[in-house]
Amino acid sequence: MAEALAHIREITDLGMIQIRADLTEAGAAITKAAAIPLPGPTSTTTNGSRRLCWMSPDELLLVLPQAELAAALAELTTALAGQHVLVLDVSDMRAAFAIEGGRADQVLAKLSPTDLAAMPADGMRRSRAAQVACGFWRQEGGFVLIGFRSVADYLRGLLDNAARAGTGLDPR
């Protein structure tokens, strides 16, 4: 039992664009401008390096490499001009961590009251990690967890501790 449950790695090159809009009205324009399908409730869609996350009935989060952010922000802003929407670069407000490894689900299970077994492969879950708000989705080999940058150190500590070797949840 000397192996950590998962490897925790901070992701520093992630761009995030928050989109708030009436999705039934602006959905088609968002899909076209961001070049990615609209996700259903509590799910995500992907296209290459991009991921679009359903955050609430009137909110989406476009996650993409920093290098693509400026262009995507401009495309979305232009496409939605004149509509009652918000398109905002929130990259600096967030911290992101990759939780990778065979027992990544156990790390999250310790921190969030989520039924991870029932979370689909394309699921997007907003929840809490111990005492702070977070959101996470599945990615090859584990999960990506996002939270507020103001509590990034706290999140890092939580995740490292929850992943400590010898703390697995499987029955002995």
Partner: peptide
């Protein structure tokens, strides 16, 4: 009823 998540008390 807005997102369909089965939320636990501490998430509410």
């Amino acid at each position: 009823p807005c997102c369909g998540i089965r939320a636990e008390e501490t998430e509410l």
